[in-house]
Design a protein around this nucleic acid. Structure first.
Lengths: 140, 140
DNA sequence: ATGACGATTGCAAGTAATTGCAACTGCATA
DNA sequence: TATGCAGTTGCAATTACTTGCAATCGTCAT
């Protein structure tokens, strides 16, 4: 990741290096606040807007994905070669990871129909999970 | 819409009626701010949090969709029986409306694979439009 | 070395949206 | 008519994120 940025001629400042370390060190979906607090441990002078601006930069370079997984803030995730998406139940809040291949037919249909290159790297798909669908039916 | 709310036993306060009128009167995708200013014309004492809380209520009842179409704020749209989605080019900003049927294979695959009822009523799909893909290739 | 430049940063102020809370409303019940 | 209560509203404060701007940094030519 650092190598890729260097190749593109993007200046690797100390702040950016620390943010990258946190992003790559955590395999979860982290919030800007998470990163901010983690970097603060070693460099207390870091500013939250630097974190947001770095994440923005990485997003524009397609190196991180930004997703609203609920919980009141956006979540950031480094782009790996195997994309994935999330099913989120808006009743019970449970989440399930799904493979990117599920979205492939849509990508193809959009390309064929509109010539549009859909970059769906990390989607949050809201709905009702298996369990909540069943309790719904029982109630009726 | 008002009838549907009345049936569900949701109190139809004057504020809610005015918000509903604006929502149904504008066939576009409106922001909370748009609604707020429109209602203010006839009732200057309306509060922006009432607008947000009403939109939240309508969202929970699946009567409006909430979508981030860019532009710095969320856009609200009454749910009609014919859903649609948006392709947004993150290079030139152009938007294209697409039919819901494009997402049908995904809905089916997610149902078959996970038993999850995906409620994709109003998606913003970001990517590169036909024109920007071509200029991209020319540059290389 | 020196100065010019473009990019980055920290800070403060701003924006969109949410939340806590007290006051109010409509409605049922005594 | 008075009382209680659930639901709603307005207000103020807060949260997540963005933006404008001055100060700083790196680096490149002189």
């Amino acid at each position: 990741m650092k190598e890729a940025l260097r190749k593109k001629g993007v200046p690797l400042t100390p702040q950016r290096l620390m943010i990258l370390d946190v992003l790559q060190g955590s395999h979860d979906h982290v919030s800007a606040e998470d990163i901010f607090h983690e970097v603060q441990k070693s460099y207390p002078y870091i500013n939250i807007s630097t974190v947001f601006r770095t994440l923005d930069l990485l997003k524009d370079l397609d190196m991180v994905t930004v997703t609203d997984l609920g919980g009141g803030c956006l979540r950031y995730h480094t782009v790996t070669n195997s994309h994935h998406h999330h099913l989120i139940c808006h009743r019970c809040g449970s989440t399930t990871e799904i493979e990117d291949s599920v979205l492939e037919p849509v990508r193809r249909a959009i390309d064929a129909g509109y010539g549009f290159e859909a970059q769906m790297h990390h989607f949050a798909i809201w709905g009702l999970c298996r369990e909540c669908r069943h309790t719904d039916k029982e109630q009726q």
